[in-house]
């Protein structure tokens, strides 16, 4: 395993009652890499994301980010160390404007507390102005300028997904976790998304872990693909290799293959 890995997942296991959602999963993601995470429904992809964002605590195993174990951190500390995510079922703050959603995404970049905020101290104002400027940039970058002041809950699904992406980026993460960003998008939108994902890596040097059922997209953007099935890792390697791996083909086509 490469010592330069940004993320190292080691023998992570998660059980829900009798279900083994993840069974001793191990893999590394190198800095600046795009790693696709594939597998049929229920394979454990989202469960792994939830471990990375500390929503679930694995029964055993270890997760290291930049060489630091993260399983001792509280949920709200994950953003600050540089991990951000989107959600499979879109978890926007529905009543808040698009701009405010993105600003919440930048929460870990600010420090004003209750007192400072209530008094609107000069430092608070400066920080607020900076956060706002950065959020507006992101909003513009993702073509959300026209709906910046609209409640996020009222937007069409495709737009909501872009808001989620912008919100995740507002924390200036080193590692971005995308849970099915292409779900529900049309062909054109998927192509656009592909450009965005590559741009994030190439222009912002971000490392990306991408859960996706859209094989065409995964295979074209990923440097590395990890395949899961029933909670177990069945393949890990370059896209072409994983794509033609017999276990992967069997997992997707069933025993008939």
């Amino acid at each position: 395993m490469s010592p330069s890995a940004l993320l190292r997942v080691e023998k992570v296991s998660v059980r829900f009652g009798g279900i083994i959602a993840l069974n001793e999963i191990s893999f590394d993601v190198g800095r600046g890499q795009i790693c696709g995470l594939i597998g049929p429904n229920g394979a454990g992809k989202t469960t792994l994301f939830n471990c990375l964002s500390r929503l679930y605590t694995p029964h055993s195993g270890q997760i290291q980010f930049e060489g630091r174990p993260i399983l001792k951190l509280a949920r709200h500390e994950i953003a600050r160390i540089g991990i951000a995510r989107t959600f499979q079922n879109v978890a926007l703050f529905g009543a808040m404007s698009v701009l405010d959603n993105v600003l919440v995404g930048a929460h870990s970049r600010g420090r004003q507390g209750f007192g400072a905020a209530a008094l609107r101290l000069p430092a608070t104002r400066r920080e607020e102005a900076q956060l706002r400027e950065r959020a507006l940039q992101l909003v513009a970058e993702f073509g959300l300028g026209d709906c910046a002041n609209i409640a996020a809950g009222q937007l069409p699904f495709g737009t909501q997904k872009r808001v989620e992406l912008a919100r995740a980026l507002a924390s200036e993460p080193k590692l971005l976790l995308l849970d099915e960003p292409a779900a529900g998008l049309n062909h054109e939108e998927v192509e656009h998304l592909r450009g965005e994902i590559l741009g994030l890596r190439d222009r912002h040097g971000m490392t990306i872990l991408l859960v996706e059922h859209h094989m065409n997209l995964v295979m074209r953007v990923s440097d590395q693909v990890v395949a899961l099935n029933f909670g177990a890792k069945i393949a890990d390697g370059p896209p072409q290799q994983v794509q033609s791996h017999p276990e992967v083909i069997r997992a997707y086509l069933g025993d008939a293959a």
């Binding site: 964002s53 951000a84 995404g105 929460h107 919100r167």
Partner: peptide, 8 residues
């Protein structure tokens, strides 16, 4: 849940 993930 999302709020906590954003660092709140």
């Amino acid at each position: 849940v999302a709020a906590e993930t954003m660092g709140v």
